[in-house]
Amino acid sequence: MQRTKISLSLLGALMLFCSCDRQRVFDEYKSLDGKWNKDSIVSFEFEQKDTVSKYNLFVNIRDNNSYPYNNLFLIVQMQEPGTRVVKVDTLEYQMANPDGSLLGDGFSDIKESKLWYKEKVNFPKPGKYKVSIQQAVRQGGKVPGVQELEGITDVGFRIESIE
C-alpha cells in the first residue's frame, strides 16, 4: 500500500515536471462562438519588463471542420507602452491541405495552429503592450471581406523566450 502511494506520487511529480513550459512568457486565449466577425478585434495586453532578451511571438488559432477556406488572413497590430505607435502587419497562413483537411495539432475535429507572428523580437520599452488581431479573409474574386468567418473557436497570443 505504501509502495503504491510512493509510486503514484513519483508519477504525479514526473508528469508535472515534464509538462512545464519553460519557454512560455505569455500565453492567453479568447473564445469565439465558432464564428469570427470581421469587425471583431481580439486584443491581448501584457506587461513586459525585459528590453534586452529576444522573443518569438505567435498567433494561436483553434478551428474546426466548419472552417471553409484554405488560408487565413489576419491583421495584427502591436502598440508600445505610453505611445500611439502601432505596428501593423497583414499576414497570411495556410490552414488546410489541398484535400481540405485542416492543418494543426489535435485528435478531434478541433485543430490548434501555432502561427509565427514575429521572430527574435526585443521589446524596446518596458511597460504594457497591446496586441490586436482581426480576421481579413475574402472570398476569391470578391472585394468585401467575409462578414462571419465560420469555424474559428479560439484566438490566442503567445510569447516564448529564446533559450
Rank of each mutant, 00 (worst) to 15 (best):
E45I: 00
S161G: 15
M95P: 01
F17S: 05
N97K: 12
E163M: 02
S31L: 07
Y69H: 10
D63K: 14
S40L: 12
Q77R: 15
T90V: 07
E47G: 05
F46T: 02
I75W: 06
F107T: 01
L74I: 01
N64K: 04
E148W: 09
G145T: 08
P144N: 01
Q23D: 06
Y29A: 00
E45D: 11
K120F: 04
E119F: 11
D27E: 11
G82I: 06
N122G: 04
K38W: 00
C20R: 13
P144V: 03
A136E: 05
P98F: 08
W36Q: 08
E28R: 13
K87A: 02
S19Y: 07
R3I: 10
R84G: 09
V88L: 09
S101F: 03
C18V: 10
I41Y: 07
M1C: 00
G100Q: 03
M1W: 12
N64C: 07
G12I: 01
K120E: 14
K114H: 08
G140A: 11
G145S: 03
Q134R: 10
Q147M: 12
E150T: 06
E47P: 00
I75Y: 02
N71M: 11
G106E: 05
V88M: 12
F46W: 04
C18H: 01
Q23V: 03
L32G: 02
P126I: 09
D89W: 14
E150D: 14
L10M: 14
S43E: 11
K142Q: 13
S43G: 04
M15H: 01
S53L: 11
V88F: 00
I6W: 02
I110K: 13
S113L: 14
R62E: 14
T83G: 00
V85C: 11
V143W: 15
R158K: 15
L115E: 09
T153S: 15
R3D: 06
S113C: 14
L74C: 01
P124E: 02
S53G: 06
G100E: 02
T4I: 15
E92R: 15
Q135V: 08
S19T: 09
Q94L: 13
D39M: 13
P68N: 03
V76Y: 00
M95F: 06
K30T: 15
D109H: 13
Y29D: 09
Q23N: 06
Y129N: 04
F123R: 14
G156F: 04
R24K: 13
C20A: 08
G151H: 05
K142A: 12
Q23W: 07
E80K: 09
T153C: 04
